[in-house]
Every structure is written in structure tokens, then in C-alpha cells.
């Protein structure tokens, strides 16, 4: 059965693209979760919705307009967070609704929802072309390369930005680079699970991996494994049961999270004692 599924060209493209996207989502998601920026993916994907609507409205390839608008949205979000007193989650909310509002306006001007738009909203991994696959794999390789080179720097600024500044890191530049990488990741991943479910692939495998109580490298490894497993199983089962792959991928990721929580409560995974978070108090 599996060999039969793998013999189809569309399944091969879906699996290759899906694995690439699963890797970048969980890798970049590790830093997003650690920075308490879990909803960044959701915010940027809604901005991407505005970008796609703009592309459809202007008659240009919507993925390119989504890339440009999402990167600008990510940079705007970072600027909003760093130069105002608006907190990270509130900044995400502002950018999210703005992107969505622009998208809704442009759609109404263009005459309503189309098949193209639905494929971006809910994912269409089984319909992607060989060119899409090459593009997704190339972008993913680039993102993984940058993350591997700068993982220690990103980990340090995720841990504590001020300490990282004192250590000599250019935190501002790294932050902007990071949001660009995250925005590109979100847009690249839209074809897999769609705008509405992208944040699940970024957040859930990382939450699951952190429950294992390991160091950074092992946590990233576990997260990527979980993400790839969910994606591959989701795509295969979608063919078998003729269900939407995006929904299955996310539900398998959720099942892995619940399974891990169950194993922890049964004592099958060491239950790590985590103390209450401490706070910097600049009270003097």
C-alpha cells in the first residue's frame, strides 16, 4: 500500500515538500516559542493572506506578493515591539488583524473568494508542482543553513536579550534577520497546512519536545522528528482516507502532544521539576 502511494508523482512532491516545511517550521518554531512569540506564525500568516489577496487583485503570482508583504509585516512587528511599549503578543494581534482586514477589503474589491484563495487558506500540498517543490526545498535549505550558523546567537537572544547585548551581539540586527527568516518560513509553509493552521506546525511539535526536558540540540531534534512524523503520516493517511492533509497533520501533532503528556503523567518520561520563572526587576 505504502509503495503504491509513493509511486505517484504528486505524493512524492507532497512528501518531499512536506518534510522540508516540517523541518523549517519546527526549527524556527523553537526560537519563537522560547521568545514567547508563539503566535508570530499566526500573525504573519494573516499578513500573508493580505499579500495573497494583493497578488490576486494585481494579477501577480500571489506567493511572491505574500513573501514581500509578510517580510514587511514581520519587520513592522519587530519595530512595533522594540520601539514602543506594546508587548509582543499585543504587537502580533495588531499586525494580524491589519493583514486580515487588508485581505478582506482586497477580496471584496476583486469579487469574492476564489479556488486559489481557498488553497492558501487550507493548504494544498497534494496539488503542488515540481517548480513549487524545488522552490520550497531550496528556500528551506537556505533557512536551515542560516539557522545552523546562527543557532547559538539566536538561542542567546531568546534566553536574554540584554545579556546577549553585553556579550557583544548585535541584537537589533539579529532580531530583524530572525523575523525575516520566520516570515519567509511561514509563507513557504502555507502550501502545506494553509494560513489558518500554520502556527500549529510551528508551536505544537516544540511544546511536545520541551516536555522531554532535554538540552537545546536534543529538543530541536525531537521537535523536528515529531513535525516530520506528523507531516508524513498526515499526507499518507489523507490519501488512504481521502481527508484534508492539513487537518490530519495538525491532529497527529496534537495527538503526539497528548501522548507525551500522558506518558509524563504515567512516569514514562522523567517529570522534570521546573521552578517558577524569575523576573528582572529594574527597580533601582
Amino acid at each position: 500500500m505504502v509503495f503504491e502511494i509513493l509511486s505517484y508523482g504528486f505524493m512524492q512532491k507532497a512528501l518531499v515538500s512536506g518534510i522540508a516545511v516540517a523541518i523549517i517550521c519546527s526549527f524556527i518554531g523553537t526560537f519563537l516559542v522560547l521568545r514567547r512569540y508563539s503566535l508570530f506564525g499566526d500573525g504573519i500568516s494573516h499578513v500573508a493572506f493580505g499579500g495573497i489577496s494583493l497578488g490576486l487583485f494585481l494579477g501577480v503570482f500571489p506567493l511572491w506578493s505574500a513573501f514581500i508583504v509578510s517580510v514587511l509585516g514581520g519587520l513592522g512587528l519587530q519595530k512595533l515591539r522594540s520601539s514602543t511599549k506594546i508587548s509582543g503578543d499585543a504587537a502580533v494581534a495588531v499586525v494580524l488583524v491589519s493583514g486580515l482586514a487588508v485581505g478582506v477589503i482586497l477580496i471584496s474589491v476583486s469579487g469574492g473568494f476564489s479556488v486559489d484563495l481557498f488553497s492558501f487558506l487550507f493548504g494544498s500540498i497534494l496539488l503542488i508542482s515540481i517548480q513549487d517543490t524545488v522552490l520550497i526545498v531550496s528556500i528551506s535549505a537556505g533557512i536551515v543553513g542560516v539557522l545552523l550558523v546562527l543557532q547559538k546567537q539566536f538561542l542567546y537572544i531568546s534566553f536574554n536579550e540584554e545579556q546577549a547585548k553585553v556579550a557583544g551581539l548585535n541584537v537589533t540586527l539579529l532580531n530583524y534577520l530572525f523575523v525575516v527568516l520566520a516570515a519567509v518560513t511561514v509563507v513557504t509553509s502555507m502550501r502545506l497546512v494553509g494560513i489558518l493552521l500554520i502556527s500549529a506546525l510551528i508551536v505544537i511539535p516544540n511544546i511536545t519536545a520541551m516536555l522531554y526536558g532535554k538540552g537545546f540540540k536534543k529538543t530541536v531534534g525531537i521537535s523536528i522528528s515529531m513535525s516530520v512524523f506528523s507531516t508524513v503520516m498526515g499526507i499518507l493517511l489523507s490519501y488512504v482516507f481521502n481527508l484534508a492533509p492539513s487537518g490530519l497533520i495538525v491532529m497527529i501533532a496534537v495527538a503526539l502532544l497528548l501522548g507525551t503528556l500522558g506518558c509524563r503523567s504515567l512516569g514514562l518520561i522523567s517529570n522534570v521539576k521546573i521552578r517558577e520563572p524569575s523576573k528582572i526587576s529594574h527597580n533601582s
Partner: peptide, 19 residues
């Protein structure tokens, strides 16, 4: 004085010192 960080932060003591 104190440092705020994600309580589940996946870094060992060795990782933190290496930073």
C-alpha cells in the same frame, strides 16, 4: 539581579555558561 526566561528553556547549565 534576576533574569527572566522561559521556565522550560531547553538549555543545560553547560549551554548557558558557554554563551
Amino acid at each position: 539581579q534576576k533574569i527572566i526566561f522561559e521556565p522550560n528553556f531547553p538549555a543545560t547549565v553547560h549551554d548557558i555558561v558557554s554563551m
